[in-house]
Write a protein that binds this DNA or RNA. Structure first.
Lengths: 212, 212, 212, 212
DNA sequence: TATGAATGAGTGTTCATTCAT
DNA sequence: GATGAATGAACACTCATTCAT
């Protein structure tokens, strides 16, 4: 059996978190056992406790690292000032590719957060960060006149985050991924003036899928 | 100890479901024990099993009845062809009043659905129903020219549902209810042409290419 | 639902015992529930308690009546002074016909007797009765010179009972009924001088044809 | 609290089986709790589940090891070609010494076997093995002219096993051990030609078991 | 008498956590 | 550090028994 710590304690933690996120994603917090996590890693149960004092702390730690991938995808797809519908589509695809069509883990984290204040605080911070990030992005779009001047950007950023989260809940409860993508894009189209403004205002060649 | 059944077996079931929804909402599925539910009702554990064969079935049954209130509020606020922003605001307030600012239960149901196919089927059906209902509602708005003609209504309906669900997740993870309401309304404003149309009608330039 | 007592309390008891013996035979003491017995009879659980103060007492009472059929078969097949092998064969067949090839109930009774002195006393009495009955029967056979003079009849009677009980245990643990019958008959043949004596009486004094 | 496993996992299993057989023998399968077994061993309930996945499996495993002692006694007493009555007597005494006068455990095993096919298969195999072993033994006796040539040995072997099992049932239901032994021996005497042949051959009157 | 809803003690089983090695 | 055997608290579920009607 490979040791947990080949060289650095930090790496050991990291490996555990990785194994944990896979196990929790597959089985959910309550169904997953410490034994499961240990086996996933090829390590003894006891070893986990050298790095995390309890299952709860392990889950918390994992919850903190989990959004990393989300952030990367979010910022890499929503940074360019290109067509926001296109960005949204890329984001959707990238998320699916990265997490499969199983948003189970987010849900588990959320579920735990509802009874774990510390975890909730972490999630809240992430939210804020995402919202601010998105708001900046929207600011850019506004300059391109893709967003109605009467809209407040921060609340709108939150509603975009909510839209994404909400789609995850729909997928978990059975909405086919394809339909989820449709809803996701239609939501974006509705929000951005893009396909309307582009044409009427600029009269350019913008080729929105829907717009011919 | 009061009897579970004052007169009708059906009422007994109903009482249990009610107690269960309170307990599950407060503690979550796994943390709540059958004992908790029984105590909440002032009844013995065994009594619960006269009506539901297992904790899981109890939860399922509760999950099926839970959306009833949601439906009522949904259909009563989103039926009039009044200002949709106003409807959205009423919906938000009614939901808060009814469920408090604790959307924990929806989350628990969702969480269980991810591992319980029967439950998932129920949720999926509800989704469809809501989506169709909302789509009809949107149809009405379209006739009032409040919705862009290029938008497909069913996906848009799903995205509205997602928006709501997503806001619940944000609230669970710490977003203040006030901000949630702000995001909810801003999302609606962005989607509906209302405020712009109002203006544009008054002003001049048609934004919508359809009218241009 | 038919009432337990159509006319006489005694008949009610009797009906319950009958239902109980069927249920206990099929499921065994521990697996059978009072509910099972009540349903078998089309009566409420509570009704059983009007006639028997507990499951244990019900089982005891049933255990006392159960051997009735056994006795009848025993005495009707082992009374004639005909060929004892023939009697044994008839007994075997009659028992199978009456109880099927499922001696489960005897076992259950035995099992309970091992922890229930009152029940044990009943069984012991039955044993004695059977043994004495069989001893008388053997007495008759001895007069016909079918039993070695040196054998004591009461112990031999017990060993015949044991032989039967033992075959039941073998059948329960998987011995095919056919083989059980073979063993049963072979045991009898071995014990009774019959087939040898018949010959020797006709032939000479040699008991064993080998030595004749 | 002493550890279940001093050194070898196999020994731990073995210890548990030992404790289990004591507890099951005393209380019976249903009355015995896992707690009882654990306490008997000075171990926690959970420990038992490290070695046996359920009470049923524990009982099965115990049932498989239980006959070991029986086999040893059986083969060691019924191997010599000495006087079979003597062998029978030694067997009886050895069994009593080993298991006390409480054949409860066999009964419990039997009782469970009637509802557990896996267990039944084990018992059936054991039966066959015993029967074949005894048949060989009888073969030897036949050569010594102690068994009538007309008897088939395998069925007879089964009937001897049945005789033993049956005596256990009688003892459980209250037959004094002394009488049981009497019946056991009288059964053997009846079956074997020994005492008769001895006489006829030698011409003496003594039928004493010991006397050759 | 008879009912059957309700009780609640009892038990098998799980699993996070500990700790001797 | 690492192990994994052991712990023991916790909990779902059963069912003999009771009792209001």
């Amino acid at each position: 059996m490979p040791k947990v710590v080949p060289e650095y304690k930090e790496e050991a933690r990291s490996r555990i978190l990785d194994a944990a996120s896979r196990v929790f994603a597959e089985k959910g917090y309550h169904e997953a056992t410490m034994e499961d996590v240990a086996k996933q890693l090829g390590v003894s149960k006891g070893a986990l406790y050298l790095y995390f004092s309890s299952k709860e702390r392990l889950f918390e730690a994992m919850s903190r690292t989990a959004p990393r991938a989300f952030k990367e995808i979010l910022y890499s797809t929503f940074n360019t000032q290109a067509n926001p519908i296109e960005s949204a589509s890329q984001f959707f695809d990238a998320m699916m590719k990265r997490f499969g069509s199983n948003p189970r883990l987010s849900l588990e984290i959320l579920s735990e957060a509802s009874r774990n204040p510390a975890l909730r605080r972490v999630l809240r911070q992430n939210q804020e960060e995402y919202a601010n990030g998105l708001a900046s992005f929207l600011e850019g779009l506004r300059k391109m006149r893709l967003i109605d001047d009467n809209l407040e950007l921060l609340p709108l950023a939150y509603s975009l985050i909510a839209l994404w989260n909400g789609l995850e809940t729909l997928v978990v409860s059975g909405l086919p991924v394809e339909e989820a993508k449709g809803a996701w894009l239609e939501g974006f189209k509705a929000i951005f003036l893009q396909h309307r403004l582009q044409q009427s205002v600029i009269g350019s060649k913008r080729i929105d899928k829907k717009t011919s």
